[in-house]
Simulated assay, not measured.
Amino acid sequence: MEKMRLQKYIALCGYASRRKAEQLISQGAVTVNGNVVREIIMVDDSDDVRIGNKVLKIENKLLYFAFNKPEMVITSMSDQFGRKTVADFFDTVEERVYPVGRLDYDSSGLIFMTNDGDFANFLMHPKNEVTKTYAVSAKGDITDDIKIQLENGVDIGGYITEKARIDNVVNSNGKCSVEISITEGKNRQVRKMFDAVGIKIYMLQRIAIGPVKIGDLKKGRYRSLTQKEIESLGYNI
């Protein structure tokens, strides 16, 4: 287990919320390895953490995975129509992990799987503006005017999208490839944005979340996120 802040450790043990844990720490009610602790320190499951005579232990190990979701896979733990879900790829993982956010059924690419609810909530909260980058293949040319429209925001059905970044535009024989980075996560947003400017996407892959890139991870495979990658997203374990 990676080291984490003491108040989070207490919360994950189910003893108290993080805020209440911070109060207990400041009141001197928490000991770590026999010493009273009144400030936030980093601990893991090798430390003896106690409140009174109660020893606190986390039953479930926190897991963080980068997964390359194939097309035609539901970003859900189950599906009423019997379609393949992301959960089917993690049936050998001891702990139950779930997807952070969504990725369209007919799109592929990077999605995080975890059992850390705080991590999931942090990434999905709009105020944190975690960037998602997509590689797009589509019919039509990305002109300078269309590029400006996409970057400044387009109407996708009563909603004007926030600013986006467009990179690596290649137009050839009536088709284009391009990368788009957004901080929002509306349903099928990238496809709707391109539809709004008359460009029809036929392949969409998420290639990065924040600074974490999909790299050479093959479709249907996953790997553990490193602590450095987790922290690079702005989240402190």
Rank of each mutant, 00 (worst) to 15 (best):
Q23L: 12
D141Q: 08
N128V: 02
K127G: 08
R18Y: 06
R221M: 14
I182H: 07
V197E: 03
R83K: 14
K3H: 07
I182F: 10
G158W: 03
V178N: 04
V43F: 05
Q149K: 15
P211M: 00
N187K: 14
K192I: 01
V86S: 06
V100K: 05
G220K: 13
S224F: 10
L12C: 09
V190F: 07
I207G: 01
R221Y: 12
S76D: 09
Y105D: 06
Q23P: 00
V93W: 02
S137D: 13
S78T: 13
I10A: 00
I41G: 00
A16V: 05
Y159K: 02
I111V: 14
R191Y: 01
D167R: 14
S172T: 11
I148E: 09
G158Q: 03
R165F: 05
I160W: 06
G210M: 01
R206S: 05
I160G: 01
L103C: 12
F65W: 03
G220M: 12
S181I: 11
Y105W: 13
F67E: 01
G153S: 10
K219L: 12
S107T: 06
S181N: 13
K186D: 04
G52A: 02
N236S: 13
N35W: 03
K147V: 00
Q189P: 05
E94F: 09
V36S: 12
L225W: 01
L12D: 13
V93K: 08
A120M: 06
P99C: 09
T161E: 02
R83F: 08
K186W: 04
F122G: 00
N68T: 08
K127T: 14
D91C: 06
A196I: 04
D144E: 14
N68M: 10
G198S: 10
V154Y: 00
V43Y: 04
I214Q: 10
Y134D: 11
K139D: 12
Y64K: 11
K3S: 09
S107N: 07
K54Y: 02
N168A: 13
S181M: 11
D145A: 15
V32E: 07
F81L: 14
L12S: 03
E179S: 10
G109P: 03
G220C: 12
Y202H: 14
I180C: 02
S181D: 12
V197D: 06
R50L: 07
K192T: 00
K84I: 11
I58R: 15
D216Q: 14
E151L: 08
D45E: 15
D47Y: 05
A196W: 01
D118G: 14
N168T: 03
E39A: 13
M4S: 04
G210P: 08
F119Q: 04
V212K: 02
M1D: 11
Q189K: 01
Q80M: 11
C13N: 00
Y105L: 13
S78E: 07
I166P: 00
G82K: 08
G157N: 00
D88C: 09
A196S: 15
Q189V: 07
I146W: 03
G140E: 06
I160M: 11
K3L: 03
V30H: 01
R96E: 09
V30A: 03
N187D: 11
T92W: 11
S17V: 10
I207V: 15
Y202D: 15
K54Q: 14
D118I: 05
G140T: 05
D104P: 02
Y159G: 00
I199Y: 05
L24F: 13
G28S: 05
T75D: 12
F65T: 09
N60S: 11
E39R: 15
D144K: 15
N173K: 15
L103Y: 11
N53W: 08
I25D: 06
